[in-house]
Amino acid sequence: MTTTHLGELSVSPIGFGCMALSHVYGGTTDDSARATLGAAVNAGITFLDTADVYGEPREGATGPAGTNEEMLAPFLAGRREEVQLATKFGITAIRTGTDGSTKRTNGRPDYAHQACEASLNRLGVETIDLYYLHRPDPDVPIEETVGAMAELVAAGKVRHIGLSEVTAEELRRAHSTHPITALQSEWSLWSRDVEDHVVPTCAELGIGFVPYSPLGRGFLTGTLTKEQVAGDFRSGTERMGQAWDANQQILDIIAEVARRHDATNAQVALAWLLHRGAQMGVTAVPIPGSRKPERALENLGALDLTLDAEDMGQLDSIRSLVEGTRNIVDNPTWISSGRE
């Protein structure tokens, strides 16, 4: 397995999104989750992405659940030196302000320190390779949050800093405070708004890009049914709810390209991202997640898949066919495109 670089951080060219190993897409056990991770790392997928908010909250818990990080701890205890570990902070349990309003983010400097300590303890590690601000706090200048994250780097608790779902302008301000190694946002065949401003800014500043949900939360694989997603949050989104049938035409295009290359839809979608990142001058390291080891290993086939101009043109046409936004909540500012 070759490696690639997000700034100065060397990582596998495809990572693993650990959110899939929690309850969000259906039940799994911690032992099964760690077995999937073991198979992935054995195959060379060494860039692991989690967050303090991932996982099912324990009864009576306040703040981020932390249970996905706790699940990872026994695995990391034996294989810490083999992996590059990323986690995030900033999304909290809904909290009520003094004025009675509610919010789901916290970017205060003192909270950044507190959240990092909590993650280090849950993960059972001394240092986090890549520490992201999961969402910017609208009440805290991003320079203040990133300044606190820089203090964590100076203290040796964090090696590199990342941001998630920030605008190009927010990214510039943050990068002027402390070098940003990677930006994580949704980017895929059917989520391309970041190409308008954010990706070009990453290319200009030399910042890597980590696409989350690169397979459209499973939709782009063509393996899901309406019934499978009926029990989770995906069915409540526009794209995978009321527009489910209309968006099937997207799958027809991906499947046609996949047949030409004797590949799977997932491999085509990931190969497109790798090619598109190169076209736009950024290193893109997608982080698909899976509860099944065989799916994680299948994803690696994207690295050997070469898409030609005809393939890319056909796949690019998907952008104009998508019905429904990529936002999973009612608040448009929850994602970067809602603030640009």
Rank of each mutant, 00 (worst) to 15 (best):
G17K: 02
R172C: 02
M240V: 12
V146Q: 03
C116E: 10
V329H: 02
M19F: 08
L321D: 10
A51L: 00
L21F: 14
G324D: 05
D139C: 01
T50Y: 01
E59M: 10
A73L: 00
I318P: 04
D196E: 10
V53H: 04
T96E: 14
T325R: 01
L21D: 08
E170S: 03
Q267V: 08
D31T: 15
A148N: 08
R34W: 09
A263P: 02
D262M: 06
I91E: 03
T145N: 04
L303H: 12
D30F: 14
G277N: 06
L297F: 05
M312T: 14
V329S: 11
D232P: 04
I250V: 13
W334I: 05
T2F: 13
M312I: 14
D193Q: 05
M149H: 10
R234C: 09
G338R: 15
D196M: 09
T62R: 05
C18F: 00
R172Q: 10
D129I: 01
V285I: 08
N327H: 09
W272H: 04
A51W: 01
A271S: 13
F219L: 13
S235I: 11
V268E: 11
G231K: 12
G281D: 07
A20Q: 02
T96A: 15
A258N: 09
A182E: 06
V166Q: 09
A43W: 12
T237K: 04
D311S: 09
A182P: 05
C18D: 06
D139F: 00
D252F: 01
E56I: 07
R108K: 15
Y111V: 03
S337T: 11
